[in-house]
Every structure is written in C-alpha cells, then in structure tokens.
Amino acid sequence: MSAAEADDRAESIRMIRDSAAAVAPPGGDLKRVRDLRFQDPGFDAGLFRQMGEMGWIGLRVPEEMGGAGLGVGEMCALAEELGRGLVPEPLIPAALSAQLLAAAGGKGPLPVLLAGEVVVLTAWQERPDTLEVPGTPDAPRRFLPMASGADFFLAPVQEGGKLALYELPAARCVPSIERTQDGGNLGTITPNMAEATRLADDVGEALAEALDEAALVTSAYLLGGMERAFAMTLDYLKQRQQFGRIIGTFQALQHRAADLKMQVALTRASIEAAAATLDAGAKGDARKAAVSRAKARTAEASLLVQRQCIQLHGGIGYTDEYDVGLYLRKAMVMANQYGSAALHRRRFMAVSPEVEE
C-alpha cells in the first residue's frame, strides 16, 4: 500500500469513527441503553433504520450490490465506537446476513435490510461454542442475537454436500426467547422448511468468511467497551479519596491500572493486525489464524479488564445503577459469540504455521 493509499484509508476510518458519534456520542450517558434493557425487542428499530441509511449494515457489501464496499478495518473501527456506547442494535449479525444475501446474488430481502427497514438474522448455529455449520434441515438453530426483533431468518441447509440458503419469515417461524445478562435476548428457532424460500445453492465459503469477520468485528466491539470502562475507572481513581488521599496515588492501584492498560493495548494491536491481514486478502489457514488469535485474546482480556474495573471502583462498581457494571454484563454475553477463547485457541493451534508440531 502506497503512502497516499494509507492516508486515504486512515481518513476513511476516521470518518467512520466520526459517523458513529451520531449513535454513540463519546462519553455520552447510557440512559437509552438502560431504557431498552429487558424489553422487547431490546433495541430501537428507528435507530437500526438510521444505521441502514448511514450505510453501516452494508459496509462490507460490494457497491454493485448496494453496499459501501469498504474493508474489515472500517467495520472494526465502527464496531469499536459502538462498543464504547454499548449500542444494542444487532448490527453485527445483520451485517453477516447482508454478506450472505450478497453472496446469493442479492436475492431475498437484501435491499430492505441494507436500508435498515427489516432485521434479518442468520440461523446457523446448532450447538454451543462452534463455528461449524452442519446445516441440519430440521435441527433447532440457537443463540440468535436480538431474535425477538427479527423480521426474517436465513437458514443454511446441507444439500448434496453444499450449504444451500433459505429465507424464512419470522411470522412463520416464531423464536423462543431467553433473556441475557446485559438485558438483551437470544432466540431459538426450528426451521419450517415448508415455509422457506430457496435463495442460493451454495453459500458455504461465503458463510465461513462472514463468520470469521463477525468474530473479529465482535472483538472490536468488546475492545471499545474495554477502553470505555478503563477510562471510567481512571477517572474514578483520580477523584476518589481515602484516608485523605486520592486513591489513584496508591502504588498498588497504579500497578493494577498499568496492567489493564497493557491488556487493552495488546488487544488493539491484535485486532488491527487481523483486520489488516483480512483486508490484504488472506485466505484459508492464514485468515483463520489471524482471526482466532485476535478473538482468543479479546474474549479473555475483555472479561479480565471489566472485572478489574469493577473491583477498582470498590462497592459502587457492583451496583446496577453505576454504569461501569453494564460493560461487564455486555462482555459476559458477547465474549463467547462467534467462538470462545478456548475454541479460537484450539483453531489457532490447528491452522497456524507459527506453531510447531
């Protein structure tokens, strides 16, 4: 990449970050997020539509399909900013569905999804903690984020050694809903293939790549939450007094804060390196290794940092009324989405050429 291209890329990412301020103002309060917790659908449909109008849902969709055609780096930058604000709208799973529909030739509800007029979720997961897609026709599909607000589901189905793609209206395939720790919801559906519309013969490769990207973008969302919670914690350490002293002057707390800052910095470096690898066109094992290294680190570091931030706040950090706890709850829900740290460590060991037998 030339210097001019690098500058253009940096400007593109800066503009994406700036655009996120319309939804998640830097340092803004979390009243909207609190009001949506434990409600149906758990997000603001109007704001989801605004995300479509800003081109976020189709950020990774090619321009000829109606998307923005931007890179993984831009998508990660956007997710990071949304993570700072704990934005509950299901942008990441919707963007995954948009990529699948584009791979299917733009069939089905792609135009209205890109416009944010409908929520389309891909029902690919049949068991916990996996990135494998068996595509069993009559098997329950689980762990669908914010499923109570879905308008359509996409169901990959194994047919003759290929993964065909079907569309299911949510009205004909009503999900069972479970509440999550952060106030959102997860759904389970059993596909009614008699009501389904076939969209594509084989989306296996496209789905595998989209799941990798979703894992990395989820890591970026968690990174944004880590950074915001850590910033809140530093502010608290600079203000809270004990025994007539600012607690941030205590050496033991300074050491703990330094360790957390290192965790955040290493996580950022891993995510940015993985995004650059994917944008450079990496395929196969190289792509999987980059994603898994970043997701494994982020899944562990996000929970470590968030728990430490709670402890550094003392008793107030454990109250529901204090915002820093919301970041821990979000990390508890999202850390295992698109693969846990353990799963991604195993995959990295299996595919990385850096690991000797």
Rank of each mutant, 00 (worst) to 15 (best):
Y318Q: 10
A22D: 15
R14D: 08
P62Q: 10
A229R: 03
A98E: 08
V33K: 13
Q306A: 15
D259N: 09
A164K: 13
M349H: 14
Q254E: 12
I310G: 03
F230R: 08
L110E: 08
P128V: 07
A6T: 14
G184C: 04
S12G: 05
A208W: 08
S219W: 06
L326M: 15
L266Y: 01
A290H: 06
K261E: 15
A294Y: 05
L100S: 08
G315N: 15
L303C: 07
Q39E: 15
V87T: 11
F43G: 04
E5Q: 12
V133R: 13
L144T: 10
V112C: 10
S219A: 12
A6K: 12
R142G: 08
S2Q: 05
A194Y: 00
V72G: 05
T197K: 14
F348D: 09
E80S: 09
F38T: 04
A103R: 02
L113I: 02
P25Y: 11
A170P: 05
M349G: 12
A220T: 00
G161F: 09
A3G: 00
C173K: 02
N185A: 13
A4F: 14
M262A: 14
N336P: 15
A290I: 05
R37F: 07
D44G: 06
G85H: 07
I92C: 03
I247D: 04
K31D: 15
Q251T: 11
A350G: 05
R37P: 10
A150K: 10
D212Y: 04
V72N: 04
L303H: 08
A299T: 03
G317E: 00
D323V: 12
T277V: 09
L82K: 01
R346S: 14
W124A: 10
M232G: 10
E209W: 02
I177Y: 06
I13D: 01
G248Q: 06
K330A: 14
A123K: 11
Q242W: 07
G204A: 14
I177C: 01
D235V: 12
G55S: 04
I316H: 03
L234C: 07
R240P: 00
E74A: 13
A296H: 04
V351H: 10
M193I: 09
M232P: 02
M15Y: 02
G67E: 11
S148D: 13
Q39P: 01
A301L: 09
R268A: 01
P128M: 07
I92K: 08
A342C: 01
P137C: 08
D182L: 01
A335L: 03
G284N: 07
G85A: 09
A104F: 04
G28S: 12
A45N: 05
D7M: 13
E132F: 14
E11T: 09
M146Y: 14
L234Y: 00
G27N: 06
P191M: 07
E213C: 12
E5L: 12
K238D: 15
A269G: 06
F243L: 05
L304N: 13
S2Y: 00
E80M: 07
V203E: 09
Q39V: 10
A331H: 04
A290W: 02
H344V: 02
Q50N: 10
R141I: 11
V133P: 09
A258M: 12
F152D: 11
G66C: 04
A123N: 07
